[in-house]
Write a protein that binds this DNA or RNA. Structure first.
Lengths: 245, 245
DNA sequence: CATGGATAGTTGTATGATAACTCACATGTT
DNA sequence: AACATGTGAGTTATCATACAACTATCCATG
């Protein structure tokens, strides 16, 4: 048939943008364009809903997405604030890439083997009293939870994350946070396979080196620690530990 | 006063985790552990609310956050699905809109200072012929684009990413990919500030070390390279480099 | 067989109410 | 005056319910 209407692609699909999405975009604009610099307290949800002429549900929806992306921070009973725009924000994109792909445990440990010794060196220079106190708290929790593999594994990951935090470098912190989240699933199996002796030993020594502000010793210990973990896991046959999928 | 209660920090703050956060964590676990592989259709919001014994609002809150992070995709009137991992980053909507501050750039470079020497060591062991060929291609492009700062900066970042690729470790690759995107905006300014001599010099030497399969030399050169970049940038006063937004 | 429409299931939005939390101010006690 | 305590307003978090908007499927009708 000639002149069929399907020939010409004239009609475009109508614009049907969700309300929450529109709110999201508007708020994002304000932040990114710098109208609302870091630290700004946003109008209350009720206020925003009134100004935008939408329900509070839609406002909350947009706010929560922005908070998930790291642009906003909501404080219960206090308000919603604009966060500092920094490089670690983009690292959020790393999370799904690692979470959704079947990441090999040895790949993660190999990465740790490079990053954690470097991190601990920076930590010996920059750790504040509260960082060291936190590390001690975590270490003691590991001693207490000797029998509870799940709790022990969790504390182990927290220990490494805490060292990253002590570097005061948001990139170290963010990446380590993501790695902790990913590893959380398999860490219990690793602890169960390797036992707790090595972990306790090295963590205590590393903590000591941090307290003594001895970077080279801390670095050496951390490298040994990760190396030994990798080596022993290889011997055990690491196929079993990761596999709950 | 003796026996003051404030002496002993015995009482710990009670656990007060938000409902939506708990839902978020549970759903995240399912995805990360692989219980719900990509493409899986989640139970309906009502169903989840009933199973978890929370309101639909809390479920939606968690789902929307996961969707914002890119782990889920909600289709109006159809359902919610675990997202297929599609290489490219969806967070890119925000990328061009942010100019990094001076501190951010140094944070990134500090991270590089640890990561890249470690990566290049692995690369000397694992780089295949095509990796080395690619590196040579990139290096030659740098020589050609001596005058074009933008192209030169781009090639510089590609060089580092290519080394990461040669490690065959997906974590190195993905982190380096994101860092490349972060630096892309500011890199031209950096090159303009520091010139191209150092870059060409070190990249050529590192390439040579890789071809010779000399890990310790490659590591030393890479560390020197990043160190020198940081140092010279400090001297220049890096305030200027970030600004295009 | 093709068309169109009814239908059930799902996500999106609206409304109103209540709980939980934070801060600042007022109040009372020493 | 100094400190502890209570009280209230403002804000976010959660709940329950209803309805709107959208999608896929099935089915009757021509």
């Amino acid at each position: 048939m000639r002149g069929n209407v399907t020939d010409g692609p004239v009609l475009k699909p109508v614009r049907k943008e969700r309300v929450s999405r529109q709110v999201f975009d508007q708020l994002k604009e304000q932040i990114v364009k710098g109208q609302w610099p870091a630290g700004t307290k946003l109008p209350s949800e009720n206020e925003l809903a009134k100004q935008l002429n939408v329900s509070r549900v839609s406002v909350r929806s947009a706010l929560q997405m922005l908070a998930a992306l790291g642009l906003l921070e909501t404080r219960h009973g206090e308000g919603t604030y604009v966060r500092e725009l920094s490089g670690d924000l983009y690292l959020n994109a790393l999370f799904p890439l690692l979470a959704l792909s079947k990441t090999n445990i040895f790949d993660v440990l190999e990465y740790r083997r490079v990053m954690d010794p470097g991190a601990v060196v920076l930590a010996t220079e920059r750790a504040e009293a509260e960082d060291l106190a936190e590390l001690e708290r975590i270490y003691h929790r590991m001693e207490v939870d000797k029998e509870n593999y799940k709790a022990f594994a969790h504390a182990d990951l927290e220990f490494h994350l805490c060292i990253a935090k002590a570097t005061k470098n948001p990139i170290f912190i963010k990446v380590n946070t993501i790695i902790r989240d990913i590893l959380n699933a398999s860490m219990e199996g690793i602890v169960r396979a390797l036992g707790i002796r090595d972990g306790l030993h090295y963590h205590r020594q590393i903590l000591q080196a941090l307290q003594d502000r001895d970077p080279s010793r801390a670095e050496r210990l951390m490298r040994e620690h990760v190396d030994r973990t990798i080596q022993r896991l290889r011997e055990e046959g690491g196929e079993k530990v990761g596999g709950e999928a």
